[in-house]
């Protein structure tokens, strides 16, 4: 178990190194010049060269990358070109908002997706099943920015039930969570349905029926724990999908999280922030997958971590 964990962490570190390298390389070949952005259009060639030298951007690529890495290992992600603030501070300040939004979205996904999937599987072949599956299809086909704008228009602008945007109370959280969670809810309901149908066909379900157990117990105690396994693995992968989704959702609702930070940084070619956010996201994805793998044996004792 400890050996497994150690190995996975080494793997994770390697993947993060790869992500850092690829992102750094991409930004290096960037045609847009960050120095020009900082210096402004009117700057002289001398000023530009000075700034370039100050930032170390006149050094060879590998030297720049090595310097970035060594700083990173000391917890230093550099300073934002534009805001002159520590990237780590910027990200840390916005992290709670993003985490809150993701938690809300995961809750929304699981609550909606699992319920719909289980009901559809149990009512398989009926109108209820078909209706739920059409809903789930619409869920996976709806662009998040359209959902966001529509929810905003109907529930905030027209009905006034929720604030139009911003951050602070539970009421601020509702619409963004639903917007971010609706896509996953669609996928989960479809997965849960087919997983549940598979499990209900298994021999041990027949055994449970042969024992004379009540239907409710067969579903809750025998079918559900077996059917939920593939979903657990999905939640890990989902973190990656969320990382993209927050850029859109935060921009629609003016949610002050790292999605907005990243988007603004990309528009202003603020390389240290882009690097920082990408790495933090990759970290979240890798850890999410690891966590999913670590939880799995508790649900299915057949899974051994080796």
């Amino acid at each position: 178990m400890l050996a497994y964990l150690a190995r996975r962490l080494v793997q994770a570190a390697l993947i993060l190194l790869g992500v850092a390298f690829v992102t750094f390389a991409l930004l290096y070949i960037l045609p847009a010049d960050p120095v020009r952005q900082i210096a402004g259009r009117a700057a002289t060639a001398q000023t530009v060269a000075n700034i370039r030298h100050q930032l170390g951007l006149d050094q060879p690529f590998l030297v720049q990358f090595w310097r970035y890495l060594t700083h990173l290992l000391q917890g230093d992600m550099g300073r934002s070109y534009m805001q002159k603030t520590e990237v780590a501070t910027l990200i840390a300040a916005r992290m709670p908002a993003t985490l809150l939004l993701m938690l809300g979205a995961i809750g929304c996904e699981l609550a909606l997706g699992l319920t719909m999937g289980v009901i559809a599987a149990l009512k398989r072949g009926t109108g209820v099943d078909q209706g739920l599956m059409i809903v789930s299809f619409v869920g996976v086909s709806a662009p998040q920015f359209v959902v966001g704008l529509l929810l905003l228009y109907v529930f905030a602008v027209q009905l006034g039930w929720f604030p139009i945007g911003g951050y602070g109370s539970f009421r601020h959280l509702v619409l963004p969570s639903i917007t971010l969670g609706i896509l996953g809810a669609g996928w989960y309901s479809r997965m849960m349905r087919s997983s549940m149908i598979d499990v209900l066909r298994q021999d041990f379900i027949r055994t449970a029926r042969a024992k004379g157990l009540a239907r409710r117990r067969i579903i809750l105690r025998h079918a559900l724990p077996n059917a939920i396994l593939p979903i657990i693995a999905m939640i890990g992968i989902d973190i990656g999908v969320f990382m993209g989704g927050i850029v859109v959702v935060e921009s629609v609702y003016g949610w002050p999280g790292i999605g907005q930070l990243a988007f603004q940084a990309i528009q202003r070619v603020d390389i240290p922030i882009i690097m920082g956010v990408t790495l933090v996201s990759a970290c979240a994805i890798v850890l999410g997958n690891l966590l999913a793998d670590l939880i799995a044996p508790f649900i299915d004792p057949r899974i051994k971590l080796r």
Partner: peptide, 11 residues
């Protein structure tokens, strides 16, 4: 897989 797809695409 570890790259946030949309973030990468935006970049």
């Amino acid at each position: 897989m570890a790259f946030p797809a949309l973030l990468l695409a935006i970049c």
